[in-house]
């Protein structure tokens, strides 16, 4: 664990000395996006990183005036986070007696994008793999949103497909938003996450559809939305509606 933190610190330092590296945006829930150069971007959530080291690298392979192709590669090391939530009493998400080994997951996706002046459409497909120690004594987190995202902690892999659509249906820009202007944009964001969760016994799935309004005013963005999740899980068929809210700060 120490080696990994050291490695991440060295990487951060190395990036920071490069003139091109800059923070693009960060949010309360959204990860911090760090632009390395025109083709590469890193993202991680700095607070969550402290208890679950994670990061993803987004590389642009090809682009023309309408389409882009990217690939996204990430990792997560959730052992420390899981140990902190294996407790008795409130916020004991896992049983206290859980034996949590070293868990490393890595996700690789390919993304195609189509964009115009007022819209952006992304189709992303890929898989996540878990390289785990002995997780025999580790129970799953059996809740719709959490189960697919923690599936590789106890199983070897999952498939994940995302359909993302963003439409700007209101925009007002006085000077290209480069100075202290009064730029205002309102976006409608729609996203479908489709998880295929193979286990030893069966194939389960989760489908999450979210709809959000995103309002951006110069350096701040406010996102408010709902996510509808449904799926077939080892603990039965479940669905639910979940609200979400975030504030994203953009560095211009």
């Amino acid at each position: 664990m120490r080696k990994l933190v050291l490695f991440c610190c060295i990487c951060s330092l190395a990036f920071s000395v490069s003139a091109q590296v800059r923070i693009k945006s960060f949010g309360i829930v959204d990860p911090m996006r760090i632009s390395i150069n025109e083709k590469n971007e890193l993202s991680t959530h700095p607070v969550l990183f402290l208890i679950m080291p994670h990061a993803s690298w987004n590389h642009k392979w090809w682009e023309d005036d309408q389409f882009r192709v990217r690939s996204i590669h990430g990792f997560r090391i959730p052992s420390l986070l899981l140990r902190s939530i294996a407790r008795e009493g409130a916020f004991g998400i896992l049983p206290k007696e859980s034996m949590i080994p070293f868990i490393f997951t890595t996700k690789h996706q390919i993304q195609g994008e189509m964009y115009g002046d007022k819209f952006l459409f992304k189709l992303r497909m890929g898989a996540e793999f878990g390289l785990n120690g002995n997780t025999e004594n580790l129970t799953t987190i059996d809740y719709p949103l959490l189960f697919p995202r923690s599936h590789t902690f106890t199983n070897s892999f999952l498939w994940e497909n995302n359909f993302i659509f963003s439409l700007e249906f209101y925009g007002k820009s006085t000077d290209g938003c480069t100075g202290l202007s009064t730029c205002r944009f309102l976006f409608l964001d729609a996203k479908i996450n489709h998880f295929i969760l193979p286990t030893a016994e069966d194939n389960y799935f989760a489908l999450e559809t979210s709809l959000a309004l995103r309002y951006e005013r110069f350096t701040k963005g406010y996102k408010l939305g709902v996510k509808y999740s449904s799926g077939s899980f080892p603990f039965g068929n479940m669905d639910g509606v979940f609200p979400f809210l975030d504030v994203v700060f953009k560095i211009r």
Partner: peptide, 11 residues
């Protein structure tokens, strides 16, 4: 409860 966030009780 669909989920009890206490002592690992869950569903």
């Amino acid at each position: 409860a669909d989920y009890i966030p206490s002592s690992g009780i869950g569903k």
